[in-house]
Design a protein around this nucleic acid. Sequence first.
DNA 1: CACACGTGCTATAGTTTTTGTAGTAAGAGG
DNA 2: CCTCTTACTACAAAAACTATAGCACGTGTG
Lengths: 209, 209
Amino acid sequence: MKPLSTMQERVFNKLRDHKRRTGILPDLSAFARDMGMHYVSLKQHLEALSKKGYVVFESKGRGRSPLLEFPAELTGIPVLGNIPAGPLSEAILEADSYLPLSGFHEDHFALRVRGDSMADLIQDGDVVLFDKRKQIERSGQICAVRVEESEVTLKYLDKTSEGYILRPHNPLYPTVEVPFKNVTIEGIYMGLLRGEVLAALVQDRTYYS
Amino acid sequence: MKPLSTMQERVFNKLRDHKRRTGILPDLSAFARDMGMHYVSLKQHLEALSKKGYVVFESKGRGRSPLLEFPAELTGIPVLGNIPAGPLSEAILEADSYLPLSGFHEDHFALRVRGDSMADLIQDGDVVLFDKRKQIERSGQICAVRVEESEVTLKYLDKTSEGYILRPHNPLYPTVEVPFKNVTIEGIYMGLLRGEVLAALVQDRTYYS
DNA sequence: CACACGTGCTATAGTTTTTGTAGTAAGAGG
DNA sequence: CCTCTTACTACAAAAACTATAGCACGTGTG
């Protein structure tokens, strides 16, 4: 993503704050007054931000309210199809869809579950939401964990003096204990979506405010 | 809900159509042109609709775009805490929260699950979405069913020549067969939400467009 | 019955605000 | 030197608000 100039960053941050506070995006002229800046200057900044992909800004003509939105990849939480061996941050950059959930931000991501290690509690195909923390607060929390360099799996996590106990919900899978240094916690379970709700919520790189 | 006059109903329907087609609500003056009607007339209709609770309409002052939205109970799908012995339609009127899901309309409702007859697949506290159909298309679909005048429960439904087989997912509950005339299908499973997603989505009688 | 009154619907005229366009200009950096 | 960023002035177009008025259709009252 292209770098922003000082003023462009100030405009962008203030815009995001306003969105967080009020839930909506402000009038251009009111926003310009708020920034202590001229309307035309603000407009030029927004056009620059738009060209760099930080916002979506479309003038509609005189007197008409312009369209001003955040692109999905900035405000939605990314839905990952699978997490390969690499670090999580790379997988997030390749997310192809986003969930517009208020209250969820940079610290969260979603995973489209493959496999049935947590069945029947979590089904193949469910979209599970995670907090990007690296530590569990108590035993028995469901986590997205990576053992060594393998794929990410979902398990209950318990802590012992030597390492983590990875416990599946599905009794067909084995419970294993792994030393701390071989386990990476990618995220902690926060909730899930299943079935046709997904089609109604998941946004494929489209825009929303 | 108060009755609408001829013109008010025309305005309301056209507004709803526009929202369905474009996803957004139009400018007042553009909309007035579209209706072949004067701007001031349209405004008066919207004010009448607002007073009767069909839309939310707030003038913001000269030159400022007014706020125009549909109330939650008209566009969101109702979330029911429990369904008492009475008919479903009454329970829906008493819904105290709504899910804003595009693609779901009058034919859908949601239920906050009590009990664990479908555990572990569906947990106590999950919000499950249903289609308001009265018939199953194939055996094994999950349905919200009412036996006689009792509470609504979630079960797999199979059809035999004499009646329905109500099959829980939880093996601790019994599988029973009930004659057709004693079973009412209230809805057919379409998906579910679990955990903190709910707080981000559920709207308590607030407004949105 | 005639009348006033309210309601629904429409329209005109004038004002304010926002937004857009054009043009100008100074400073930074490759 | 050219481009990008930042900023301003001046003017134009569209949207939206206010106030006012006319007409049709009821309903209730004297």
